[in-house]
Write a protein that binds this DNA or RNA. Structure first.
Lengths: 206, 206
DNA sequence: CCGCATCCCCAAAGATACTG
DNA sequence: CAGTATCTTTGGGGATGCGG
């Protein structure tokens, strides 16, 4: 935001850095790992190449993103988050938790971005996960949660295996409904995970 | 945001609701309590009356803000947050925590908004405060923290009294430096509070 | 191809004036 | 007091171009 809010306030200051349109979505993408310019353009439909370039320059300028040139074999350059950028993770988490409350369940034909399941586990479960290993198979995605760490793919001998459609997974997480969810193994452990990650119930008006 | 991001993602969805310029600052103001139109315009320098009106309409439209007409004696109307709006508090908190890391200390002549101290206590300390009562006097503001609740003004017989300039208060909180801070009472309790509320140290790059 | 810079156009923000 | 109306300016969306 070239224009400043002109207030001494940490929130206003934060929004001056990442409050512009697309900024936080770029951060969201980069939280998944380093990405090339074209990867970002592809993951952010309708962003427009000039805006993407401008945002990356801004984010780089204020130390949230760094540009790195990959070693010779593949002479590509990638963008990645600095530690300051990674520190936005709690912001993204709370934004996602809040946004989820009014996000409808995914349609059965909804196009989910590749890697979404790992991202969801990382955002919602990883910070509060009890010890144990969870294997999730949702739609055509597969990801695992092992001792508070989300990972793509599958893990050996998990404590519990969860299988569901995206919609069923949504209902399980958001409304604690088990219809269409297949559980194998330690169901009670899964219940504890869901409990810990529960989307905040309505905050009472102060 | 009239324009949609067209992604099935809770963060994108959240940003469609509150991602526009000024939206979150309006929420920040309303987190302090119900406000009249003019109060908001005054608290948000340079917002421009048309933009304020538009944002309020948007926020009302998606259930974050409600307009209420005050009972006859004073026929004013006020805006206030719905429970869904209040649920943005954690988002604001994380944004503020993150923003604070690159916000410089306030200058001695910095104009702070009235009530800022109570807001700071509420945002940073209230959610993690240990039991006990704290009295803060910073600059010309006075606020207290009693059993995890922030309140303006002063409290009887607090466990600890903290007195400082805004800059000294900043350094105390952000850098754990005690220069220029006067403490009376249970200093160890204050240290525990600061510990609990500590601005996240650098998240390690994943 | 990948990584942008440029150009054009329209939508949204800023500023100011004015009204129920 | 609580906005609407109007005008100007800025910034985003979309297409295209162009050097490495």
């Amino acid at each position: 935001m070239a224009k400043h809010y002109e207030q001494y306030c940490p929130v206003a200051h934060a929004l001056e850095l990442v409050g512009e349109r697309w900024s936080l979505l770029i951060v969201r993408e980069l939280l998944k790992g380093p990405r090339r310019y074209t990867d970002l353009a592809e993951a952010l439909p309708r962003i427009g190449t000039n805006v993407l370039a401008a945002r990356l320059k801004d984010l780089e300028g204020c130390g949230i993103v760094a540009k790195r040139r990959l070693p010779p074999p593949t002479p590509a350059q990638v963008y990645e988050l600095t530690p300051y950028g990674v520190a936005l993770k709690p912001v993204m988490r709370e934004l996602a938790r809040w946004g989820l409350r009014s996000l409808p369940a995914p349609g059965d034909d909804e196009a989910l971005a590749p890697g979404w399941l790992r991202g969801a586990l990382d955002t919602f479960f990883a910070p509060v996960a009890p010890d144990g290993s969870f294997q999730f198979r949702v739609g055509d995605e597969e990801a695992a949660l092992v001792d508070g760490e989300a990972a793509a793919g599958s893990v050996d001998d998990p404590d519990v295996i969860v299988e569901a459609t995206p919609a069923a997974f949504y209902y399980l997480f958001v409304e604690r409904r088990w219809d269409g969810v297949e559980v194998e193994g330690d169901r009670e452990l899964l219940e504890r995970l869901l409990e810990a990650a529960a989307p905040a119930d309505d905050a009472v008006l102060a």
